[in-house]
Write a protein that binds this DNA or RNA. Structure first.
Lengths: 151, 151
DNA sequence: GACACGTCGTTAGCATACCTCACGATCTGC
DNA sequence: GCAGATCGTGAGGTATGCTAACGACGTGTC
């Protein structure tokens, strides 16, 4: 099956930089995560935003966009999709007419508890195959990465 | 600015699982990486595939797709773009008429050494802000993640 | 009070990056 | 030889980001 090794003119082995290895790892895992399909039509981006609302409570679209690290226009579409699914709802801001408050509905809460866990089953299985020390490394890495990406 | 804390009916704080935290970190860093634009018209996906060819040597489109974790049709377009840029070239497989061998051109090698580093400058800067122990954590995490995503 | 200016959310339009389905060319086992 | 598998590709669809521009609303200044 592997052909590369048999071809003359092959590159020598390199020692890729940490940046290269981390980038590749992140890009790949991201692809895998997106590829995990449940039969529901809710996408990873939507789940991510919904989880954020679930964990942090009601907030404005702008705050949600900031937390997820996307631009406000991108979040608008995500919120609209969640609203269409009946998992989130918008209500007017009590004092500022420009803003709105987005919150999780009861259906949204049920969905987070059930489907989101299902969605993360693939990753959970992978994590379960690791030993405790490796999970600890990933836990610390998640925190470091989040800090790097966060700002 | 923060409004969520003031709203009644707020969720209690949860302790997100490792899967949740890792997913969010990966999704976010991935967004940041893709948002980094160099003036060149080569995308992150193309760079990723080109780096793969550079590091592993010539291989068939199918093998490259498998290594990158995408479906063959997706890789076809990436290879076409790389070929158009003059960074990769296709030649017929010596024994199997169905397959082809994709390899990096000299221009592609030069590009990997120069532009890819430029592309990774943002990440490099972030990594430089960490201490040695944190970089070691990320280095180990990159290896673990790659193993999880790889298969 | 009126007007200028800032902020917030949204709409519109675009680019990228995946996917699945379908097809033609080629190889292989009987 | 011929049926079926395999490989690469074309077509079309969806998701996910972005920027630019706009309308609604709030705020400070006179």
């Amino acid at each position: 099956m592997r052909y590369a090794n048999d071809v003359s003119g092959r590159e020598e082995e390199h020692e890729p930089s940490l940046a290269s290895r981390l980038r590749l790892a992140v890009v790949r895992l991201n692809r895998r995560l997106r590829a995990q399909r449940t039969d529901s039509s809710v996408t990873l981006t939507q789940i991510s935003a919904l989880s954020c609302l679930y964990n942090w409570g009601p907030m404005t679209p702008g705050e949600l966009a900031a937390k997820e690290g996307v631009q406000p226009p991108s979040m608008t579409r995500v919120i609209a999709a969640l609203e269409e699914h009946g998992f989130a709802s918008r209500r007017p801001h009590p004092t500022d007419g420009r803003q709105a408050i987005v919150e999780v509905t009861q259906a949204g809460r049920d969905f987070v508890r059930a489907e989101v866990c299902a969605r993360e089953r693939w990753l959970d299985r992978r994590l379960a195959d690791l030993d405790e020390e490796e999970r600890e490394v990933l836990s610390r890495a998640a925190e470091i990465i989040d800090r790097m990406a966060g700002q």
